[in-house]
Amino acid sequence: MMNLTNSCIITNDVKKLSEFYEKVLQIEAEFYGEDYAVFRVGDNMLSVFDLKAHESIAPGSAQAELNKSIILEFNVENVDEEYERLKKINIDWVKEPTIQPWGSRSFYLRDIDGNVISFYTPIK
Rank of each mutant, 00 (worst) to 15 (best):
A58S: 14
V41R: 01
N90Y: 11
A64S: 08
I91C: 13
V41T: 07
F74P: 05
Q26M: 13
I71N: 05
N90D: 15
E65P: 01
W93F: 14
S61N: 15
E65L: 14
T11A: 02
M45N: 15
V38D: 07
A64R: 03
P59H: 01
S18R: 01
A62D: 15
F31L: 07
D13Q: 06
Y32P: 09
V14T: 06
S18V: 01
L25Q: 04
E84G: 03
K68E: 13
E22L: 14
Y83N: 12
R85P: 01
L86S: 12
A58P: 00
E22C: 12
I89F: 04
E73I: 13
G33R: 06
L72H: 09
A53R: 04
A37T: 02
K88E: 05
G33N: 14
Y32W: 11
I27E: 10
L72C: 07
D92C: 07
A64Q: 03
E55I: 10
E65F: 02
E30L: 14
D35L: 13
Y83Q: 08
E96W: 09
V94F: 03
Q63Y: 05
V41I: 05
N44K: 10
E19F: 03
D13N: 03
L17Q: 05
Y83G: 03
F39L: 07
D13I: 08
W93Y: 06
S61Q: 07
E19A: 04
I89V: 03
F74I: 15
V14P: 00
Y36C: 11
E73W: 02
A29P: 00
K23G: 02
D92A: 08
N44R: 10
N90K: 12
M45V: 12
N90H: 14
R40W: 11
E84S: 05
R85Q: 06
F49A: 03
K15Q: 06
E82K: 14
Y83W: 12
L66A: 05
E34V: 14
S61A: 05
L17G: 09
S69Q: 07
D35I: 07
N78D: 13
D13P: 00
S69N: 08
E84N: 06
F39H: 05
I9N: 01
V38F: 02
D13F: 00
E65V: 15
K15S: 10
V38H: 04
L46Y: 00
H54S: 04
F39I: 05
N75Q: 11
K16Q: 11
A62G: 11
G42I: 06
K16P: 02
A37F: 00
G60D: 01
K52Y: 02
E22H: 15
L46E: 01
A58Q: 14
S18P: 00
R85Y: 01
V79C: 05
S56N: 09
A53S: 13
S56F: 09
Q63M: 13
Q63C: 08
Y21E: 13
V41H: 01
L25N: 04
Q63G: 14
A58N: 06
E28K: 15
Y36A: 03
K16D: 03
R40Y: 07
N75V: 12
